[in-house]
């Protein structure tokens, strides 16, 4: 076990605990946007995809890179936009134009 690995594990475990602490307070009303927002956050995988681009030199590597980049970008862009659309709908009072009678 190297110090580097140990540092990474420390970060991982503490982040898990922070996640449990923060998220257990989210009300049921917001569970769908929470999940969708968390979904967008794991789109940070795009940073990882960009980093492996630096070492990509083979045809197979380029193919994998293209697919990974498309996947990760879809995750990030779609995730944040759909979450924002959902949260925009949560209003304390119904909008005037939306009232049906």
């Amino acid at each position: 076990m190297t110090p580097l690995l140990f540092a990474d594990i420390t970060v991982f475990v503490l982040s898990l605990l922070v996640g449990f602490e923060v998220i257990s307070k989210v009300p049921a009303t917001l569970h769908t946007p929470l999940m969708s927002g968390a979904n967008a956050i794991h789109g940070v995988v795009i940073v990882g995809v960009m980093l492996i681009a630096a070492n990509t030199t083979t045809p197979v590597g380029y193919g994998l890179l293209l697919l990974a980049a498309a996947f990760a970008a879809m995750n990030v862009a779609g995730g944040y936009i759909v979450t924002d659309r959902m949260l925009a709908m949560f209003k304390a009072r119904p909008a005037e134009q939306g009232v049906r009678s």
Binding site: G19, M35, H42, V44, V45
Partner: peptide, 25 residues
Amino acid sequence: MAGFVIGSTPLIIAGALVGAAGAIL
């Protein structure tokens, strides 16, 4: 895990946060 593979802290942190969110739900 991808963060561990390429040694990227933001991936480890964000991944753990989402893992916790998913586990709680």
